[in-house]
Amino acid sequence: MREILSFISENREMIYFVVLSIFVGIEVIGGVPTVLHTPLMSGANAIHGVVIVGAIYVMLHVEMDNYLGLGLGFLAVLLGTLNVVGGFVVTDRMLEMFKKK
C-alpha cells in the first residue's frame, strides 16, 4: 500500500499529464459528424504510429553484438513506419475525395 502511494506521489506530474490528455482526447472527438468517423479512425490510427519513436530509441541504445535486439528492433521500426506512412497516406486519400466537391 505504501509503495503504491509513494509511486503516485513520485509520478504526480505524469499522472496529471495522463488524466488531462484523456480529457483532451475526448474533447477533440466530441461532436464529429458521422460522415467523418472513418477518416478520423484512420487518422487516429496513423497517430498511434508514434510508437515508432520508441522503436528508434531502442535501436539507438542496442548493443552491437545483441543480434536478437538488432533484428527485433529493425522489425519494430519497419512495422512502425508502415503504421505511420500507410495511415497518413490512406487518410489523405479518403479526405481528398471529400475535397473534390
Partner: peptide, 27 residues
C-alpha cells in the same frame, strides 16, 4: 504506445498514445 511513453518518459508517445486511446474509446 502510451505505455511506451511511460517507459522512456517520452512525452510525444504519451500524448499521441493517450489521445488515440481516449478518442478511440469514445469513437
Amino acid at each position: 504506445a502510451a505505455f511506451g511513453g511511460f517507459l522512456y518518459d517520452n512525452k510525444v508517445m504519451l500524448t499521441g498514445g493517450i489521445l488515440v486511446g481516449s478518442a478511440g474509446t469514445l469513437l
